[in-house]
């Protein structure tokens, strides 16, 4: 449901629909204990909206207004991912198993979430090492040599990631991870009231988005 709503957020046409999605993400974040994140995102959303309002009267800023709209859209999937990233991996696998999602999809999704903190740690390590060699040490040098800076981040990042992916894959295969065969879960996955609330509000959000869309099209 979360995935559905956040995907639809990327295709939204109207401001009201975006706001509806935001309210839904709000419910999701608060239900699963990320109140701080919810507040942060709302503040950022408000600030960007305000910025758009200010920029309406000048036409010198080029694509900037469009950018604020896109950032607000991209915020929704980020909000959707927040509780999942912090959840124990076992819970995620158990829940996906219960939904009868194919094993291959479950594993690739889990690996994706596992890689997020790794990627940010790798990025910080690389940026730090670059400063010593005078690559992108200051804002000015980044502006002067944008391609060199990007290349020097991407190359080591790709090398590290492919190495990690290889070693990780070896490490889980010798521990019996495979696509076929029977497996069990240590974590229990149960559907509780929170999930019910989410499903109802999710369905309502999608219906409402559809209705506003039809309404707008009719003029």
């Amino acid at each position: 449901m979360i995935i559905l709503v956040s995907l639809s957020a990327l295709m939204l046409k109207t401001e009201i629909a975006l706001l509806l999605c935001l309210v839904f993400m709000w419910i999701w974040l608060i239900l699963f204990g990320c109140v701080k994140k919810a507040l942060q995102c709302t503040a950022a959303y408000g600030a960007l909206y305000g910025l758009l309002f200010l920029m309406k009267n000048t036409d010198m800023l080029g694509n900037l207004p469009l950018l604020t709209v896109y950032i607000r859209r991209l915020m929704l999937p980020v909000m959707a991912a927040a509780p999942v990233i912090n959840a124990p991996t076992g819970c995620l696998i158990a829940a996906l198993n219960k939904m009868k999602i194919p094993r291959a999809a479950t594993l690739s999704l889990t690996v994706m979430f596992r890689f997020m903190p790794t990627l940010s740690a790798e990025y910080h390590n690389i940026r730090e090492s670059q400063k010593i060699r005078g690559i992108g040490a200051s804002f000015f040098t980044v502006l002067r040599h944008p391609i060199q800076t990007a290349e020097c981040i991407l190359v080591p990042m790709l090398i590290r990631t492919s190495k990690t992916a290889d070693e990780l894959s070896a490490s889980v295969q010798v521990r019996g991870m495979k696509l076929g065969g029977a497996y069990s879960s240590y974590r229990k996955s149960v559907i509780d009231v929170r999930d019910m609330v989410l499903m109802v509000s999710g369905t309502m959000t999608i219906v409402l988005i559809y209705l506003t869309d039809v309404y707008v099209r009719r003029g």
Partner: peptide, 22 residues
Amino acid sequence: RSQFFASNVTDEIVLAMENRNY
């Protein structure tokens, strides 16, 4: 850094058992 699949200690330790349907 590259041998852990899970983000949580318990999940990591039980992984080999889960995969073998304990």
